[in-house]
């Protein structure tokens, strides 16, 4: 004989990821590593910014480079002689806490002060997945168009720092960087917003200061 039974599961995949993310944060805290998610549109300057920060910040830095094919960005970081883990996301559009957990196992956390986690260039999917970092930095650039912020509200809502990059070419692409600043402020009144050019290095000092401030207040 057979019977029909209802089985309660209540397993929220988002919550499961959040729990893993919290575990990642505990691992980072134990090793005294300040971790920063670097999110943003494709080609907005995420890797370029991290490269400059490795060069200019007086801290021991490590990087997790998530990319559809990870060896490209990871290869760029390796030239700086810092610990790097490349994560292939393959067809996936985002990193998740589980992937990061494995990368943490392979990093010399005890020898690091700051970890940058570069996510896949995408303003949509990473929003759903906490990784366990202490700070969320969103890097966009004027060349994506000055309506980028309005179009992707959720990623800005959870950001701690928004970098509006490539202002050196704003005029050429006919984008109004001020509009992007205003839109981000409206979505997230408390967020810090910095306009930058990684070519002229305008705004770079401000970004470094902002990271230092966050790190101290953790």
């Amino acid at each position: 004989m057979h019977k029909i039974a209802d089985v309660e599961i209540q397993h929220d995949i988002m919550v499961a990821n959040k729990k893993l993310a919290q575990r990642n944060q505990r691992i980072l805290d134990k090793a005294d590593v300040f971790s920063i998610d670097v999110l943003g549109a494709i080609g907005s300057g995420k890797t370029s910014l991290i490269e400059l920060l490795i060069d200019r910040m007086d801290e021991k830095i490590g990087v997790i480079a998530g990319d559809v094919i990870s060896k490209f960005d990871a290869g760029r970081f390796q030239k700086y002689n810092v610990p790097v883990i490349g994560l292939n996301t393959g067809k996936e559009c985002h990193l998740d806490a589980h992937l990061v957990e494995h990368a943490l196992e392979d990093l010399p956390l005890d020898e690091m002060d700051i970890l940058f986690v570069e996510n896949v260039g995408n303003l949509i999917c990473p929003v759903d997945f906490d990784l366990g970092s202490h700070m969320r930095m969103v890097v966009i650039s004027v060349s994506e168009g000055d309506d980028t912020v309005e179009k992707h509200p959720l990623i800005f809502k959870d950001a701690d720092l928004v970098v509006i990059n490539k202002i050196d070419i704003a005029e050429a692409v006919g984008a109004d960087a001020e509009k992007m600043v205003k839109d981000a402020k409206m979505l997230n009144p408390d967020v810090e917003i910095i306009k930058s050019s990684l070519k002229t290095e305008e705004g770079l000092e401000k970004i470094i200061d902002s990271i230092k401030r966050f790190k101290e207040n953790i």
Partner: peptide
Amino acid sequence: GQECNVKNIRIEKPD
């Protein structure tokens, strides 16, 4: 509004 929750299942099983 942010959930992706496997809530429950209805199964057939031996008595």
